[in-house]
Design a protein around this nucleic acid. Structure first.
Lengths: 320, 320
DNA sequence: TTGTATGCGTTATCAA
DNA sequence: TTGATAACGCATACAA
């Protein structure tokens, strides 16, 4: 690939002059300018981002660290981030932690090797202060997406609030006992449980940690023929599987059991029954996260933490 | 972030010696070796990949160019590629063409700027010789994934064959008229149509180009109350939507209408009815594509094109 | 307005 | 076994 030095030789000017032309510096004679531009075009010059980055300015790379891109929701997040990054002139280098703490740590080193200008992450263990330490070592700005991480700028939906919304709706619809199916440390469960106890159902709620389809089916079997069961799923994938398990067990949905998912992924509206879900504003989150990161990149130095939770929206369909 | 030169100063050796130590070159006195390693560990040294790349060796970056990562299938592909790349010591820089030719071209320039060692792409217009030109300009190896591109190493599933499998199964199940719903230039349609005509159904097959849900519903309405309808969908997302449309129109599935999807994404088995589909060996494709790319990176120079189609597998569930 | 010189952090070549 | 030196491609300070 052609370099500035080569263009300089071909056009009989010095390399810095080529640099000036290609960077739009106006203090260059028009004739030279034309000659250089023509040569660059002819050989399809592309700046060497490595050299540029090495030289001290930006790399225009963002590290993006996700937990599981094969989850439709995170895939949407990745797509939106990529789009936003591009709008801001950045490219993304993508990593998938697969919910693996070791891998997450390893990837942070990789990210440092490439001297990314900043990092967007779905942090594991967001309530510990682990990431605060990571951010210091990275010494580039870090923004947490979809989760609120201690000590980091965070762009996320208030999960506890979403749990409350789900609880409120299920109670209004006269469900009588309640289940949150998902990770036990999920804020959604906290909010779900709290709202239920406020509504007089403190003794009617339980949490099932999702492990696999069989275990969920076995757990749900215990509710057959009992009081109307309102279920809040940690995400739409769980929701999909729960619907499938309920069908196997012969539950009438939404009469005997209702299900509310989380993330409102595309498939939800096509399911049978279609899946009620709490939607997250993916595009907005990506836009906020990227623009915040760009701001931090362009304005280094200490800065107050960003922490403005966004709000989920309950989308009612057939499943509850 | 600490550099070799800084470590050199701290340990009273020359910078090249530090380089030797950190690269595992054994011709260094053990005492020096220890001193340097300790210092590097203490300051958590990470090599500057930009400098390393600039200096002429590898960047250990792969450009990955997908059409739409929000499609569960491509999300799986992305995940598998990332995993394989990591196994080989590479990181990926990810782009989403969004089926947009302009964007695809633009991203190829970006990829060149970062001096990636190679490119994995889901090429748009794979039957034109456009990508052959792209590959030349890139002057790094390019491997096409999930599609067979003219002039490129390609790792993909034989779509025509898959179409034939779908056709064969639907005929065996006594469907009497047939629909392919998807892009008209899809090889799946070619194979579907061909197999059907071999089986004596050359006049019972049509293609509907997917545009939106309403248009599909309207098109399907014309088949209500007619002969048993066998549908092959261009991908599982279409399949999902088609099932939903059939439900709205009151079709009994699989009795009056049968549906076979493509990609066999996770959700298929949880749908109601669950979706029969042709599965693609995603992990295998990613593994083959990445290892082929690594091979081409490590063995530059001309080389015979790779073109060994893999085979889809028909997964039968309830929808057909 | 243009060119010379320098440095970014590596690796590689050559001497010592 | 070690160190000096150059080179990669670019931007920048400075000189002309």
């Amino acid at each position: 690939m052609i370099t500035m030095t080569e263009i300089a030789k071909l056009t009989n000017v010095s390399q810095p002059t080529v640099s000036r032309v290609l960077n739009g510096n106006m203090n260059v004679a028009p004739e030279i300018r034309e000659r250089v531009l023509a040569c660059a075009r002819e050989h399809d010059y592309q700046v060497n981002a490595l050299a540029k980055g090495l030289q001290g300015s930006r790399t225009y790379l963002m590290g993006v660290l996700l937990t599981d891109i094969s989850n439709g929701f995170f895939a949407d997040v990745a797509k939106a981030i990529e789009t936003e990054a591009r709008k801001n002139g950045y490219s993304i280098i993508l990593f998938n932690s697969d919910y693996n703490l070791e891998l997450e740590k390893e990837y942070l080193d990789v990210v440092r090797r490439y001297r990314v200008d900043g990092v967007l992450a779905v942090p594991l263990r967001e309530t510990s202060d682990m990431w605060q330490g990571y951010a210091e070592k990275l010494d580039v700005p870090v923004v947490a997406v979809t989760r609120c991480a201690k000590g980091l700028d965070s762009v996320y939906v208030d999960h506890a609030e979403a749990g409350g919304m789900a609880a409120g709706y299920l109670v209004r619809k006269k469900y009588e006992q309640f289940l949150f199916i998902g990770k036990e440390y999920d804020q959604k469960y906290t909010g779900f449980r709290y709202a239920l106890s406020e509504l007089g159902h403190e003794n009617d709620v339980a949490n099932i940690v999702y492990q696999n389809d069989e275990q969920i089916r076995d757990a749900l079997r215990g509710y057959v023929g009992k009081r109307r069961l309102g279920i809040f799923a940690g995400n739409d994938i769980y929701g999909l599987r729960i619907l499938s398990a309920l069908r196997e067990l012969g539950f009438a949905v939404p009469q005997e059991a209702g299900v509310i998912g989380f993330d409102d992924t595309m498939m939800g509206r096509y399911l049978n029954p279609s899946l009620s879900s709490v939607s997250q504003p993916v595009a907005l989150m990506a836009e906020k996260a990227v623009s915040r990161l760009v701001y931090r990149i362009e304005h280094p130095g200490p800065c107050e933490l960003w922490d403005e939770p966004l709000h989920g929206e309950l989308v009612i369909r057939e499943s509850a």
